[in-house]
Design a protein around this nucleic acid. Sequence first.
RNA 1: GGCCCCAUGGUCAAGAGGUUAAGACAUCGCCCUUUCACGGCGGUAACCCGGGUUCAAUUCCCGGUGGGGUCACCA
Length: 563
Amino acid sequence: MDYKKLADFLFPDIDQTPEDLEALYPKRQLPEGAEVTRLAPSPTGFIHLGNLYGAMVDERLAHQSNGVCYLRIEDTDEKREVEGAVPVLLDVLSYFGINFDEGACKADKPGCRPSNVEPSAGETGSYGPYWQSMRSRIYKACVKKLVAEGKAYPCFMSEEEIAQIREEQSAAKLDPGIYGKYAKHRDLSFEEIQARIAAGETYVIRFRSEGDASRYFTVRDAIRGEISMPENIQDVVILKKNDLPTYHFAHVVDDHFMHTSVVVRGEEWMASLPIHVQLFAAMGWDVPLYCHNTVLMKIDETTGQKRKLSKRKDPELGLSYYKELGYFPEAVREYLLTILCSDYEEWRIANPLADYNEFHFSTEKMSDSGTLFDINKLNDVSKDVLAKKSAAEIYDFMLGWAKEFDQAKYKLLADNKDMLLKVFDIDRGGEKPRKDLIYAQQIFAFIKYFFDDTFEYESEWPAEVSAEDRKEILARYIAGYDPADDNSAWFEKVRGITADLGYAVKPKDYKKNPDAYKGHVGHVSGVIRIAVTGRANSPDLWTVQQIMGKEKVAQRIEKAMHA
RNA sequence: GGCCCCAUGGUCAAGAGGUUAAGACAUCGCCCUUUCACGGCGGUAACCCGGGUUCAAUUCCCGGUGGGGUCACCA
């Protein structure tokens, strides 16, 4: 068989060779030790935690080594594409602090070339195109070489034929797939190929595997070390009928010509390592360093078992979930970093104020077993992040969030800026800041008692205080209330009411001698607290009232006397 | 089922051939306090099982078991 002739017959219009491409995409000029990484999503419009997780690894690895982190769009499957997905992806990643040095970008980026694929996007950099659907000729040049060397061949098998083979194999308990004698079109004659094509038959290009499953090879993974696997024996499809490559081939070609030094991807790709290694070898290229990170898991409520976070079942997988709830992007990032890198949390405790970019990220410290997503931990991390923010920063964030997701709250925020600045400032700063703010929606629930529209009684009145006493307390309280009192003068008055009505001024006295009193000052102030805030727990009451102003305090007390 | 990855408290995890087996979250108790939050102190709680190597294994090896991933003209 004259493979060269076959290659020319199959790809008459492809005159470029991989050598030509080599000259077109020369080795990058980068400092010693610089890593080149990439994020290579398919534009499905769904951006999940795993994407961010991987993107953070890419970003850190590249930027802490003065390397390059680029964005490549894997749009070889039209069915999965969603119009406008790329600008959204860019926005979301940028929101979480991930920015790319080259590759796909938004259409308005200065100096970028327009994308033929998506009008709202473009690309920068000299290793493009960065949209796989635009790289068809590059892939074909590589496929042509493989065909010319007898390492790939056209396969005309129909889906039905393949399905039937699979059935046979499964009935005989054999490994499924196109290999060995099942690779029926491996050695068609040139004439037959010619005839089939002339008859209008369509085909894919398969790789001719010379692998032997009893032979093992090893690859080094940045997280796991040496991985040993049997060679691939499958004749995998490398060029599909739509003239675009499968993931396997695109990965090999692109990461070679774009000079990716570290391939960060999900663990689910590990199983196809034998194919990739084989393809790199067939092209005569070096294999990049792989970094297979773990998948995020959760406990399934119905089965009680650990399972991969799923797009359909788990809203918390989508990044938009955190945006909509109003988590600070730093909080999500901090959380991901703590589960990504086992030494991050300790570093953060030692360096509470440092920029996270100062942390030295190493793949050896990355987790190698499936990590359970823990909302508790996220919330805890988020509290710490927010505790370090100023009231103005929190206000601005809330405002931006509400503008996007909740117009009513936006108006509320905009109309009450001065007051809210004070609210967010309660117990903020200093040695022991409050840590009770987590995310925008939760924060609104937390401060809702400041607004008459959302105020409600959320706690029970203290059982120690009778309904009569309650009215008496409130009546005396409002009669004596003077916003000009400082915190201690104010509390002295509360103590006065407490003693007059037969309650213990010191909680300890009551505890020692419960029969001598009706209750203690905590119960009395509890009545006032619930009257003013609707709940038994609140930040410092005196401060809250200072912010509310006398009129609102009086209204609340009045309302409570009739409650 | 084949192949691969993984296995330390409820969760995330550190760790070394000999340790009282870190730390964080969660949880419980106490202290502080007019409530909560913060903070402080303390508690409960772990090396999957079986062989082997070794003076010694949770740590190394093998085999199970368990969990996960993957077996497309999807990525």
